[in-house]
Amino acid sequence: MDDHLIGIVSNIGVISFVALSAYLLLLTGEISFGQQAFFAIGAYTSGIVTAMWQLPFALGLGAGAATGAAAALLVGLPTLRLHGLQFAIATLAFAEAVRILFELFRYQIVRDGELVGPNGIEGFRNIRYIFENDVSATEFMLIIYGLLGATLFGLFLLERSRLGTAFRMIGEDDLLAATQGVAVVPVKLTAACLAGTIAGLGGGLYAHLTTYVEPAIFDVMLGVHSLAYGLIGGLGTAFGPLLGVVIDIGLLESTRWFAGYRMIVFGGLVAVLLIVRPRGLLDEQLVHRIRRAVRRRPRPSPANDTVLGKELS
């Protein structure tokens, strides 16, 4: 693989984390315009841990994920009783506030005769851990995909668990879920925290991949994009958001097809796609059919599908 390709593939991997984060909340029926905030918090935190405090990379990533989770918990407590548009706009307000706070955030120390650390609107330069420790681009890409694979595996286990069923039940109808004995608020809070963790972890990887972050990267555009990825790729499986990222970054941003008209082509494609498949390419029905085909024998619908039975009728 040449460097250019490695760069693109790594970028796809890292952005997939925000997309998965938004997807997880979509499962519970909530739209968040604000997952980029946890991505930003993870990026800054892990950068501070490795580049400024010179602690190991793993610790940086862990700290990024942990602060992402903590921030999600903090925002989730007041906002999760909101619904629909109110929740979406509350997360938007939070994320934009976070972005502006990073514009105001200055915390720099001298390292090797150089100022290092977040410098307001200028951003946070020289998060050079992987260069200083001779991690090659290929190795770092493998690290990204290792963690992405682990995250996906975790999500698959989750979707098969009672908790995952509870997520989808709430997403279908939270009142009905409550009457079935699902503790709606704690379950939603769990989903928000997991989403924050995933975004925070992705942020840590992103900061070390690019070695440089600035507040402007984490604007509403990133938030709406990560939401769109799930819807383009499909809400039936965690592979859906990944497919969305691959289509956008892999096919369109990275190749120079349609230069100058890329957004016109992409925007039109997405709009038409959503008319044909309003729940994305890999929607629940297709996933259900694939699963049955893989098992080769018809089986009574698992719990998940009865929850979604409404869709089929």
């Binding site: 979509l26 739209i31 629909g84 709406v224 939401l227 769109a228 819807l231 383009i232 008209y261 890329r262 957004m263 016109i264 992409f266 925007g267 039109g268 494609l269 997405v270 709009a271 038409v272 959503l274 008319i275 309003p278 729940r279």
Partner: peptide
């Protein structure tokens, strides 16, 4: 015509994401 009329009632998220996609289009135009 593109983002709202063809998507049935209850496809709120799809309409919103679709209108975002058209945002990109209109801005580039």
């Amino acid at each position: 015509r593109l983002c709202f009329a063809p998507l049935g009632v209850g496809a709120g998220v799809a309409s919103m994401v679709s209108s975002f996609a058209i945002w990109m289009q209109l801005e580039q135009a």
